[in-house]
Amino acid sequence: MTNVKPRIRLDRKDIKKGDTIEVKALVSHTMESGQRKDKDGNTVPRKIINKFTCTMNQKTLFACDLEPAISANPYFHFKLKPQESGPLIFTWLDDDGTRIEATETITVS
């Protein structure tokens, strides 16, 4: 599933200051826990998304540190009250160092 873009949905992108934006984010990832054994009895090495962040202008608005107890294809639903306009940058960090990024621009008036 290498050619899959992360899925991001904002309930709105144009808000007044003080309003809330609902964000849903979903990315394709097996979240290999490191506790599973393959059919030969060898432990399958851990490989998970260990960090998810939502930033704007270098400020982290929302973040999550993930453990192997998060289900495959990690899903997040959260709410922001952004004070300024700009690009919201969503980043998923894999154990192997890979970064997955997505951007949604919002306007706050």
Partner: peptide
Amino acid sequence: PRGGVARFTFSAEAVPEASTRIR
């Protein structure tokens, strides 16, 4: 097997509320 599930960090510009799916 291990207790950790997730740690959410909220700025002043986030509502302290989050949903996910867990094992």
